[in-house]
């Protein structure tokens, strides 16, 4: 069977509908919500704050701690709450995707905590989480060299597609899912995972597609961040 048309009628290089909002959690230092299609991620940032236990402190730079978790109601089949093998791994890769842009050396001996909750999942949750976390970090006033945007690309059947949904991920002929995170300015890859089979050419083609998608996401992120201070232009 050939994959000639996408289930939801999108083009092969078309993203699902994206929306983002900043400042959704009042008690956090920074927070954001990022929605792509039916996937919704919320992120909260606390810190820089004191890090305990003390032996974890780094006298040269701050420690970035990410925590990714899925709400038990986020998927069709109830997910057992609490950390799992999968969420631990995603927390770690998220941390590494963000650590390269955050100016951690400005806050020695402290911790910056990022909490990501997936409240609704339809594939691409780690990418949505990274997008939300990057916005929340900026909203928390933490100095960053750049913004990060992430999108999943992949191969469904014999087609290279962007932003796979759950149905495409479970395509019976086999699907390859490649989450990619890119910095906004230099288009440096900060996350690249691959689950499935692709040839070298196909991979390069997919990453090219991801670059285009990330640009679109980045524009949404900027707009959401500026939205809360819109009135500033009319004021002084």
């Amino acid at each position: 069977m050939v994959y000639s048309k996408r289930e939801d009628g999108r083009k092969f290089d078309e993203l699902r509908k994206i929306s983002a909002k900043v400042g959704i959690i009042k008690r956090a230092d920074g927070s954001a919500r990022f929605q792509i299609g039916d996937t919704i991620a919320i992120a909260a940032v606390y810190g820089p704050r004191e890090l305990h236990p003390k032996f974890l402190q780094d006298p040269e730079k701050a420690v970035l701690r990410c925590n990714y978790d899925m709400a038990s109601f986020s998927v069709t089949e109830r997910k057992k709450p609490g950390p799992s093998r999968r969420s631990t791994e995603i927390s770690l890769v998220t941390e590494k995707a963000l650590a390269s842009v955050v100016e951690l050396d400005l806050f020695p001996n402290t911790a910056i905590d990022v909490f990501i909750q997936i409240i609704q999942a339809n594939a691409g949750t780690r990418c949505a989480g990274i997008c939300a976390a990057a916005m929340a970090l900026a909203h928390a006033g933490i100095p960053m060299k750049d913004m990060v945007a992430a999108i999943s690309v992949g191969k469904v059947g014999d087609k290279i597609v962007i932003d796979l949904d759950k149905e495409e991920e479970d395509f019976e002929e086999g699907a390859t899912d490649i989450p990619v995170a890119l910095t906004a300015r230099n288009k440096e890859v900060t996350l690249l995972q691959l689950d499935g089979e692709v040839s070298k050419d196909e991979l390069m083609q997919a990453i090219k597609l991801a670059r285009k998608g990330c640009e679109e996401i980045h524009n949404v992120q900027i707009e959401a961040l500026k939205e809360i201070y819109k009135e500033d232009k009319n004021g002084q």
């Binding site: 842009v101 909203h139 100095p143 960053m144 060299k145 750049d146 913004m147 906004a184 300015r185 961040l225």
Partner: peptide, 30 residues
Amino acid sequence: VPGEKLATGMEYLPGNGSFREGEDIYSSQL
């Protein structure tokens, strides 16, 4: 927003909340 280009050229200098990369000055904060 972080990573936004503020100015180009060496005539300008980066102050608080901004940094230089190559010829350009970028923001590091919201």
